[in-house]
Every structure is written in structure tokens, then in C-alpha cells.
């Protein structure tokens, strides 16, 4: 029983990373209408940048906000420069651009930092806490809190600020938004920026546990895609809940289902994508009408 609880809790903490990446993917999807295959690679890039900054001696108190700002600018810039030119060319061209971004940003990271797996010290230290029968590392608690904070902030921006209202309006009906004086182009870039910033936090938190390498978020991308599919592409909350569910599910599966261990955990998200598309394509929280054809 304790074992099950411990597995669930650690599934939740890894699930938070998938949730943040899934949220980023959902944000881009709601604005631009495409899956950003490169979202994971953007997060990997962010993790390496934060590693470089911390090696250079910067304090984590400085690195985290700096990283968020850098990631925002990067994401918005990518939308503006590389995605905008094919915006009117249909979903196929958009998706292909994100595939190119995946290939490209993976190559750039590997060229700059090499392909070896590096260990990155946790910004939260190596302490271990015991609560009743459960064990928590400082990394799990601190990282979880950081990701949760990032997602909460993102949610608050969308729900309660004038900027968020505009972003939601553009996602809902871009033509009408334009008629009301909203610059949809700016909003799409902002959407990509916020997505990259949330993803950057996910990358930063994942790196100490998974080890820093160009493949840091390759598997996480698949898990996040499964999370978004499960939660529904049209729902931000759904993406987050989906991420947590996927985290717990794949953790429990690798512990209790014989044969599904290690990397093979990825069978779980794959099965989830397959089944959800087959049974309930709009996902748990999604509205059928907003699924883009």
C-alpha cells in the first residue's frame, strides 16, 4: 500500500513536468492550430541555457526569472520569424515547420553542448525528507512547486488579465478578434512566448532528475502529447490534468505491469493516444466542436 502511494506520488511529481509541457503544447495549439513537435526541444534548450548560466556562477534566484524571460522572447521570435511565413499555408506546412524546428534545435543543442549525458545539480539541493512512510527529495518538492507556480501564473494570466482575455479571444475566433481591434499576429507570438516560458520551467525541473542531454525531453514530448490528447487540445486545464494522469499511469505501469520498465514506459502514452483518438477524440475536457478539422 505504501509502495503504491509512493509510486503515485512520484508519478505526480514527474507528471508535473509532462503537465507543463502539455500546457505549452495546448497553448500553441489553441492559438496557431498546430502541434509544436519542437516544444520538448525548446525545453531542452532552456535546460542547457540554465545549466550554462549556473556554471557561470549566477544564482538560481536570478536564473529562473531570466530563463522565463529569455524563453518568452525566444518563443515569440520563433513564431514571428519562422512560423508566421507559413501561417496561411495550411496545417501540413505548419506541422512540417515544427518538425524542422525539432530537428534543428536538437542539432544545435548537440553541437554546442555535445551528446554526452551530464549530471546537473539540483537547484534545490540534495536533501531527502520523510513524511510518514513516504520519501520526498528536495528536488521533487522544489521542482514540483516551481512547475506548479509557473502553470498557476500562466492560468491566472489567461483567466484574469486583459492580455489573457485577448489571447483567449484570438484562440476562440481570430476573425472576430481582428474586427475588435486585436492584433492577432501579436497575440500568436505572445502565445508561443508563454508556451516556451512554461516549457522552459519544465526543462529546468526535469534536467537534474533525468540528466542533461540533447535527448532530455524527447520522451517527455511523447508523454506530453499523450497528456494533451487525453485532456483535450482545447482545454488548458485538461492538458495539466492529462499530464498528471500520464505521469501516474506510466509510473504505475512500469512498476506493476511486467515487461513495461525503463524506456518502455513510452508504450503507455502511445496506448493512451491510440485509445483516446479511437474512443473519445476530443479528450476528457475538450469540446467536440473545437477540434480542428
Amino acid at each position: 500500500m505504501t509502495e503504491l502511494l509512493q509510486q503515485t506520488v512520484s508519478g505526480l511529481t514527474t507528471g508535473l513536468v509532462y503537465a507543463a509541457l502539455a500546457l505549452a503544447i495546448a497553448l500553441v495549439f489553441q492559438g496557431t492550430g498546430t502541434l509544436n513537435f519542437a516544444q520538448g526541444e525548446f525545453a531542452t534548450l532552456a535546460a542547457f541555457v540554465s545549466f550554462a548560466l549556473s556554471t557561470a556562477g549566477l544564482s538560481w534566484w536570478l536564473i529562473v526569472p531570466l530563463l522565463v524571460v529569455l524563453a518568452f522572447v525566444f518563443g515569440a521570435g520563433v513564431e514571428r520569424l519562422l512560423v508566421r511565413p507559413v501561417e496561411g499555408s495550411g496545417p501540413l506546412a505548419l506541422l512540417t515547420v515544427t518538425a524542422a524546428l525539432l530537428l534543428g534545435s536538437n542539432a544545435v543543442v548537440a553541437l554546442i553542448w555535445g551528446t554526452d549525458v551530464r549530471s546537473m545539480a539540483s537547484p534545490f539541493g540534495g536533501a531527502v525528507y520523510h513524511v510518514g512512510p513516504l520519501t520526498f527529495t528536495a528536488q521533487a518538492i522544489g521542482g514540483g512547486a516551481l512547475v506548479l507556480l509557473a502553470m498557476l501564473l500562466c492560468g491566472l494570466i489567461f483567466r484574469f488579465t486583459p492580455l489573457g482575455l485577448r489571447l483567449r479571444a484570438v484562440a476562440d475566433n481570430p476573425d472576430s478578434a481582428r474586427l475588435l481591434g486585436i492584433s492577432t499576429g501579436v497575440m500568436l507570438a505572445v502565445g508561443w512566448g508563454i508556451a516556451a516560458a512554461v516549457g522552459a520551467v519544465a526543462g529546468l525541473v526535469a534536467a537534474p532528475t533525468l540528466g542533461l542531454s540533447p535527448e532530455l525531453m524527447t520522451n517527455a514530448l511523447l508523454l506530453a502529447l499523450a497528456a494533451v490528447t487525453l485532456g483535450g487540445f482545447s482545454s488548458r486545464l485538461g492538458a495539466v490534468v492529462g499530464g498528471l494522469l500520464i505521469g501516474v499511469l506510466s509510473n504505475l505501469a512500469s512498476r506493476y505491469v511486467p515487461g513495461i520498465g525503463g524506456d518502455l514506459q513510452l508504450v503507455v502514452p502511445f496506448a493512451v493516444i491510440f485509445l483516446v483518438l479511437l474512443v473519445r477524440p476530443q479528450g476528457l475536457f475538450g469540446r467536440a466542436s473545437t477540434v480542428r478539422a
Binding site: L35, P91, L95, I273, L277, L278, P281, A293
Partner: peptide, 10 residues
Amino acid sequence: RVRGLNLGLL
């Protein structure tokens, strides 16, 4: 079931 991006996803 739903066209569009799902083949890309799968």
C-alpha cells in the same frame, strides 16, 4: 475519427 493533425500525432 478526427482528421487533421491526428495522423501527425500518432
